[in-house]
């Protein structure tokens, strides 16, 4: 039986992610695990994250999971979600911490001076709710998902990749920001597919069958 490992480094509840993946996959074993060996033996890896990035980086290292994450990101179909996307970058403004550095670029906070809607009203931070995700490249994970489909976001920071070629989707919130990045076997998203109803389940279903 093929196995999908959801990396658990103690930051938040991963049950919803696990249940959503189980919901869209048959005959796949979904494990929520903090065991590097289990991560390395999985066919696919999901790297989620909640809360603050400095805490996430600290907890990841406290569990000795960094080498397994780096190896999985090098060799397996790999899905980063929310802070799990942000951690793939070099550095975050949140707590001024280094990330894993798999992608070049910075994790930035929404700039207060740009948080103004078209009608002049204030845009709230965190960016919380359903926003349009505009696909910037063809990708198997976008299969059967409309361009501009709405996904559920909840975050105050976003990734700003140095290499525009990895941008897989953007969303507008005061500024256009990167909602998804893709490169080789890695796909990483700021929004929450496990909370995004049909569109989210479709994306997870696409990940489960993706062969990069």
């Amino acid at each position: 039986m093929s196995k999908i490992a959801i990396i658990d480094y103690g930051m938040g509840n991963l049950r919803s992610v696990a249940k959503a993946i189980e919901h869209v996959s048959d005959g796949v074993e979904v494990v929520v695990t903090a065991d590097p060996a289990e991560v390395l033996s999985a066919e696919r890896v999901v790297f989620p994250g909640q809360g603050a990035m400095p805490d996430c980086m600290r907890e990841l290292d406290a569990r000795g999971l960094r080498p397994a994450v780096l190896e999985a990101a090098r060799s397996k179909p790999f899905l980063g979600i929310c802070i799990g996307q942000q951690m793939l970058f070099e550095h975050s403004e949140e707590g001024n911490v280094p990330g894993l550095g798999i992608f070049r670029g910075e994790v930035r906070r929404f700039p207060a001076d740009k948080m103004v809607a078209a009608d002049g009203s204030r845009l709230k931070v965190p960016h919380m709710g359903w926003n349009e995700v505009w696909q910037k490249q063809a990708h198997p994970l976008w299969a059967n998902i409309e361009d501009g489909a709405r996904f559920y976001y909840v975050h105050s920071y976003y990734v700003d990749p140095a290499d525009p070629a990895i941008v897989a989707a953007t969303t507008d919130y005061g500024i256009p920001f990167t909602g998804a990045v893709a490169q080789a076997n890695i796909f990483a998203i700021q929004f929450h597919p496990e909370k995004s109803a049909h569109a989210g389940l479709q994306l997870l279903s696409n990940f489960v069958t993706w062969n990069p």
Partner: peptide, 11 residues
């Protein structure tokens, strides 16, 4: 909450 979260994929 457990039961709902297993079957309903919105916040």
């Amino acid at each position: 909450v457990e039961q709902v979260a297993e079957q309903v994929f919105i916040p």
